[in-house]
């Protein structure tokens, strides 16, 4: 229960952050990605602000084995670089640049009632489902 409540609260805060920052606006995101046009560097400040806070939090988190609420710390163990990481990130970046949506802003725009966001999120979930199918096949063979 505590875990789910904290999850809801974190999601809510994340959504507010995306709205305040301008990241929830695909046109703003595309303005940031368009360095050859009229470039809007604002979103670099979003990343900067988030990492500024994150650095402190993760420094503390890394030293702990249980969270403040007593749950297991589950930080990624691997730091291996592989083809999957790079190919996946290229695909993600291409998709991001096409419409200006990444997963979080897509969900927030969906909550705002944007039909385009519904189309994006539905396709994104379909893509993730496709990944699960491919993975299951790969393991089975």
């Amino acid at each position: 229960m505590k875990f789910n409540l904290a999850s809801f609260g974190a999601g809510l805060l994340f959504g507010f952050g995306l709205l305040v920052s301008g990241m929830a606006n695909p046109e703003k995101v595309l303005g940031f990605l368009d360095i050859a046009g009229q470039w809007d560097p604002s979103l670099a400040f979003v990343m900067g602000g988030a990492i500024l806070v994150g650095l402190f939090a993760f420094t503390i988190a890394r030293k702990r084995t249980v969270s403040l609420l007593g749950f297991d710390m589950r930080l990624p163990a691997t730091d291996r670089l592989d083809k999957r990481l790079v190919i996946g990130s290229v695909m993600f970046g291409a998709g991001w640049g096409l419409a200006g949506f990444c997963p979080g802003p897509g969900l927030v725009a969906l909550g705002a009632g944007e039909t385009g966001a519904l189309v994006f999120i539905a396709a994104m979930i379909a893509g993730m489902g496709l990944f699960e199918m491919i993975e299951k096949n790969r393991v089975a063979h």
Binding site: F14, G17, A44, V46, G48, G49, G54
Partner: peptide, 21 residues
């Protein structure tokens, strides 16, 4: 506003990892 929003996003990620791990 970008910086403020970024800080809020950072606080969310911080709360999530510190509370829920």
């Amino acid at each position: 506003s970008a910086l403020a929003g970024g800080i809020i996003i950072g606080l969310s990620a911080a709360a999530f990892v510190l509370l829920n791990g």
